[in-house]
Design a protein around this nucleic acid. Structure first.
Lengths: 210, 210
DNA sequence: CGTACTTTTGAATCGCATCAAATCTGGTGG
DNA sequence: CCACCAGATTTGATGCGATTCAAAAGTACG
């Protein structure tokens, strides 16, 4: 148990760079294996835990009136649904996109830890602020009217030096970009043909990085 | 000065319901009148202050490659650019959309207040979490493919009981919805003609509120 | 080796963007 | 008070791009 805890400790600390997870909070946590497509919680469920993704991928999704999934957030390493800490019930579904594992922190222990550990609190606040900025960037992207613009924007903001290594299928990427998968395939093809993109499997590079 | 401070105090406290702004932070604050279209700060500027809108409207905007404005957030009463507290420089422009006034809190004093006042800190964290959820809702809206869906979604999430009172021009609303103003006008017209909306000036009501 | 899912392409359609232009409106200065 | 002006509102015509529906080929996994 101690070994597992120290495993969490190092992983979680890597993510929240400014501090460590307080010992007592770690001791109250629970390691949860997840299988692909598993729904961890649903919109409306009472908030029982704060989740930290260790491996695999967990998505924050809502559904439109046609039942289509809208992906609001993807977490492959780090907290997910941070905003639920202050809420009574979840505002989205949490769905695993891959097999993996996560840590569940009881809400009560989490709040207690924030109250009593200043470093942890600072890290949490920073985490929330970063999250706000990320989501704003996502809004900015969805505000662009063409598929090509959204693709460029994605590579510029999510990649490094105009290069992105995709960590999801193109179909899933299309959903994140607010496009149908067909529109994404065609836009990628055209951008490649026109010399704006260099595509090699999951590695996609902008030819004219600004 | 005392009177002005207590004026801020009541306004700011109304917004941040869970606490008060600490006295020392208020004393370090500065009242700033703003005129319409004034740019308060630009993307890339060093973060000098945290802004709280008292009256008027301030928008958080970025510009796409064509120079078109993308509105990421509108504040008519409350903090704006909260996420900049943890950053070195602003990540968006702040532009006034109306004449009004705001309070500028020096970043240093703000951080100090968060460190030393537990109630204020809790309120701030809650504020950030709420902001995350709001922006996620905005993403969800922009992920919808049709103008009609975005309009309905807006009324359902931003209005009360299926009724929204617009606090901005339709042109500005169109930008917030990620549409051209023409597309918004036409969609509104069609929704009204088809009996889905009841439009009376700035009051817009859903006919089939779910 | 079969099955489920992704990737890819095709064809048809629809809705939104774009360009244009005619009111309408609120606010300003004469 | 009125003329004027800038911006918002509204309608029209046109074209493009994304959606939709369909289907084939590729791929991963048990």
């Amino acid at each position: 148990m101690t070994m597992i805890n120290s495993y969490w400790h190092s992983l979680v600390s890597t993510q929240m760079k400014l501090t460590r997870i307080p010992r007592r909070l770690l001791e109250a946590a629970e390691l949860v294996p997840i299988r692909s497509t598993q729904t961890l919680c649903r919109k409306g469920d009472a908030v029982r835990g704060i989740f930290f993704v260790l491996t695999g991928e967990v998505r924050l999704v809502r559904r439109d009136t046609n039942g289509r999934e809208i992906v609001l957030h993807r977490a492959r390493s780090g907290f997910i649904a941070e905003a639920s800490l202050g809420a009574k019930c979840y505002h989205c579904d949490l769905v695993a996109a891959e097999k993996g594992s996560l840590v569940r922190f009881p809400v009560y222990s989490f709040r207690e830890a924030l109250r009593e550990d200043a470093l942890f609190r600072d890290a949490w606040t920073t985490q929330l602020a970063i999250e706000v900025m990320k989501v704003r960037t996502q809004c900015e992207r969805l505000g662009l009217h063409s598929a090509a613009d959204r693709i460029s924007h994605y590579i510029e903001t999510e990649g490094k030096d105009g290069i992105i290594i995709l960590t999801q299928s193109r179909k899933a990427w299309a959903a994140e970009l607010g496009l149908t998968h067909e529109a994404l395939y065609r836009a990628l093809r055209r951008l490649q043909d026109d010399g704006f993109l260099l595509i090699d499997g999951d590695r996609i590079a902008l030819r004219n990085p600004k």
